[in-house]
């Protein structure tokens, strides 16, 4: 059986908010190392890979592998009943028809319990190769969100270019063009504001802003975001969570005709 207790319901609420635009139904794969999820969007252009390590829960118990097939819209309806600060416990039997969610407020004078029906989801898992990315950029997640939003107003696509000058986000649309340059920045007192650029070779790739905008829905999960790029491979956008848990998005590049 599965029993996983989260100190703050906010984490699961934010995870579901972050992925439900991209994916409507997916398996939450539970095993003794934690709860994972891998799913592609319908067009097979973007993929979300999330893993909440067992250390992110207290306690965490999962005796055997359990796949919880969940409709994220339905899960979100149930999670709306949880306050951000509530303690959230997920429970399921070994071959479950439902997942049980319990929300307790901090003063333990309210306990809400919901059963969410599960579904059989036949999901293909893709092998994501380990990549030594040519460029890794860490920046405030709010900054990346703003860049994505601002450029979306001008164009459908952005070209992310990383060279020894720094990183640039450039786009061109009907009304004109835009370009945002970021340079390395270190703030010892506020490391969340740091911009870090590590590059082994110059990279330039073009991506659909629509998907980047979807990924940015995870901004509330982490103050920093990491973009990993190599020429001619999908972009990885990572939001690191506590206890080595993470939510990662992959996006296939666009190529010129």
């Amino acid at each position: 059986m599965l029993e996983a207790r989260l100190e703050q319901a906010a984490l699961l609420k934010k995870v579901v908010d972050a992925i439900k635009e991209l994916v409507q139904e997916c398996n939450f794969d539970c095993n003794d190392s934690g709860i994972g999820l891998q799913a592609m969007d319908n067009s097979h252009v973007a993929l979300v890979s999330m893993f909440l390590k067992s250390e992110s829960f207290s306690p965490f118990r999962c005796d055997r592998n359990i796949a919880l097939g969940i409709n994220l819209n339905a899960l979100q309806k149930v999670l709306r009943a949880a306050q951000n600060e509530d303690i959230l416990t997920l429970k399921a039997e070994d071959a479950p028809d439902v997942v049980n969610l319990v929300f307790e407020n901090a003063t333990a004078d309210r306990i809400s319990e919901y059963d969410l029906k599960l579904m059989d989801i036949d999901q293909e898992h893709l092998g994501i190769p380990d990549t030594d990315y040519a460029a890794q950029i860490s920046m405030p997640s709010s900054e990346f969100q703003r860049i994505t939003r601002d450029l979306s107003a001008i164009s459908e696509s952005v070209t992310i270019e990383c060279n020894k000058e720094g990183v640039s986000f450039a786009c061109e649309g009907d009304i004109g063009k835009g370009n945002i340059k970021l340079r390395q920045y270190t703030n010892v007192d506020k490391p969340a504001e740091n911009v870090e650029v590590n590059m082994t070779e110059p990279v330039a790739l073009t991506f659909a802003l629509k998907y980047l905008g979807n990924f940015c829905k995870a901004s509330g999960l982490s103050e920093q975001v990491r973009l990993c790029l190599s020429n001619e491979v999908p972009l990885m956008v990572e939001y690191a969570l506590a206890n080595n848990s993470y939510i990662r998005f992959y996006l296939a590049p666009k190529i010129g005709d």
Partner: peptide, 14 residues
Amino acid sequence: KSRQQTLGKFFGKP
């Protein structure tokens, strides 16, 4: 004009 690629080209079945 540019063309959107899909992930299947890059990520295989494990």
